[in-house]
Design a binder for these strands. Structure first.
Lengths: 141, 141
DNA sequence: TCGAACCCTCACATAGGTGTGAATGTCAAG
DNA sequence: CTTGACATTCACACCTATGTGAGGGTTCGA
């Protein structure tokens, strides 16, 4: 699989695939002519990378996370204390992100529900501004 | 509450508080001397903002999301079709992020568990590299 | 054999969030 | 009155992820 195909089937610009490689997130062998040759599993890996980047992780962190979880085998031995600490820290940060996103997502959903209920007043309700329950993002962090 | 206090109790550089204000994410009245005067609820709001930024949302999007969910009251009427579409789109993206983070977080947790189990071989297991179950990040997107 | 479509590397440009500092104003305490 | 802590605005600089294009090779079908 060459870069064009991978690009197309992951919706990722070639430029970025090369960039991810440069950052050590993605590995490709090379055909005799120098073209990158990607393995099937790269598709998922690229999607994973993009998802994590979207979610606010840096390439540096992603690089540290991916190799530990990359293949079918886990290299239990190859994990220094420091790596483990990083993973734990990052796992916790991910939890926080998940919480924050979940709360916000629920708040948005609640708001959208309210708006739609108001527009098609199937289950009637007063118009204009409604109070209570408060779709408040406040207590989130 | 002035900027210094808010900065300290949210762990956010003053610079950023001003930046958030400039981006329309945060509002402060001004004391007669021109100093910003923050309301208690700003603390939560700032934490919310930071959480969302951490999670990959841009200030532009956050600005669009916050006002709809900001106060105790919902302005059901003040939502254009376009705003609603944006909110729906953003809610979906948040869901995706949550899924991606959740999977990765679980994978990391699984990996860490395996490592710790290996280090303190309480429930014995062979050393070195273990196979199966695969703590594989692949199928994530 | 030519052109189109693909690949390569290199390199400069952009945008958003953040760091940092200059030049200045305000206020409380010595 | 001065000093020090805190505030203000303005502006340049940085990093990272990404866009974009130049200059040039490879492959393949017309």
């Amino acid at each position: 699989m060459r870069i064009g195909e991978l690009s197309e089937c992951t919706g990722t610009p070639r430029r970025l695939l090369r960039y991810y490689e440069e950052q050590g997130l993605l590995v490709a062998d090379r055909s005799p002519n120098g073209y990158r040759d990607y393995d099937e599993r790269c598709v998922d890996r690229v999607l994973q990378i993009r998802g994590l980047l979207e979610s606010g992780l840096s390439t540096r962190i992603i690089k540290q996370i991916l190799p530990c979880l990359g293949g079918r085998l886990i290299h239990v031995t190859g994990a220094s204390d420091e790596t483990i600490a990083t993973l734990e820290r990052e796992r916790d940060r991910m939890r926080q992100r998940i919480e924050c996103l979940t709360r916000s997502q629920e708040a948005i959903s609640g708001y959208l529900d309210a708006v739609l209920r108001h527009r098609r007043p199937a289950a009637g309700r007063a118009a204009g501004t409604i109070a209570e329950p408060s779709y408040d993002l406040a207590a989130t962090a």
